[in-house]
């Protein structure tokens, strides 16, 4: 399984890094969201009740980190669907003695891609004066949280792609993720949200991920346990979803 996973991961990474049409969109969106939101909405932290010590750039960085982690998985889902549409998946399915290795390969490649993209966003953040109050351990925990969310996104999108095997399934992969991401406290802390969006954000798992990331960036461990407590079982659940998707693809 290891050689299958590494072969698939190598191919995805090579393709992503050597073709600007794949590299750019995956990198552009987190950068645009970060610069656009952190730049334009910088005055938002003056709203009464907005209490986040590191500042609005860091506040938005946490969001973009979680958002890009999940969306990187969706991009991988597109790639899987395209592989099926173009027949390339057949090559993988015939050659791979253990087909679950294909899934692992896609997941590893997505993680690597996300880490690289996040490094770029982080560099831009530091360039525009973003403050990070967390220590090395906090940042390591942040990385683990991001990787877990990334895995959730990949497994979700892979499950859809493996079942439908068409790029027409793109919106089905993308839309639910987009929905849960933006129905979280993206722009202001959850306490400043009112009405239905507050109610939805309270039960939205992505709220926990974003708040966990914001805590770690602020040097606090508050919310972090909840974030991992939700993320890990969700990853396991979507792992099952992706594996049953793989079985569905095998049935043809």
């Amino acid at each position: 399984m290891i050689h299958v996973a590494s072969a698939v991961a190598y191919r995805v990474i090579k393709k992503s890094l050597t073709n600007i049409s794949f590299l750019l969109p995956a990198l552009m969106f987190p950068v645009i969201f970060f610069v656009g939101f952190a730049g334009a909405l910088s005055g938002v932290d003056r709203i009464p009740g907005f209490d986040y010590e590191p500042g609005y750039e860091t506040f938005q960085f946490a969001f973009v980190l979680v958002q890009s982690a999940a969306m990187a998985g969706v991009f991988t889902g597109f790639g899987i669907a395209q592989d099926f549409e173009r027949g390339f998946a057949r090559r993988l399915m015939i050659a791979a003695p253990r087909r679950s290795g294909i899934l692992v390969g896609y997941a590893i490649a997505t993680m690597i891609r996300w880490v690289l993209n996040t490094a770029v966003v982080l560099a831009i953040g530091l360039l525009i004066g973003m403050e990070i109050l967390g220590n090395g351990l906090d940042l390591f925990a942040l990385l683990l949280l991001g990787l877990t969310v990334n895995l959730i996104g990949t497994l979700w999108a892979a499950g859809v792609a493996l079942r439908l095997r068409s790029t027409q399934a793109g919106p089905i992969m993308q839309f639910p993720i987009f929905l849960v991401i933006f129905l979280a406290p993206v722009f202001v802390p959850i306490d400043l949200l009112t009405g239905w969006i507050h109610a939805v954000a309270t039960v939205n798992p992505f709220t926990a991920f974003i708040e966990g990331a914001r805590s770690l960036l602020a040097g606090s461990t508050e919310e972090v346990g909840v974030a991992f407590g939700i993320a890990v079982p969700l990853a396991a659940l979507f792992g099952l979803w992706a594996l049953t998707g793989l079985r569905s693809a095998e049935r043809g």
Binding site: L41, F178, L193
Partner: peptide, 17 residues
């Protein structure tokens, strides 16, 4: 429409600036 919906909900507190 979705973008309008979620962003305007999430950023509604900004209208008090």
């Amino acid at each position: 429409l979705f973008f309008l919906f979620v962003v305007s909900s999430g950023l509604d507190p900004v209208s008090s600036v």
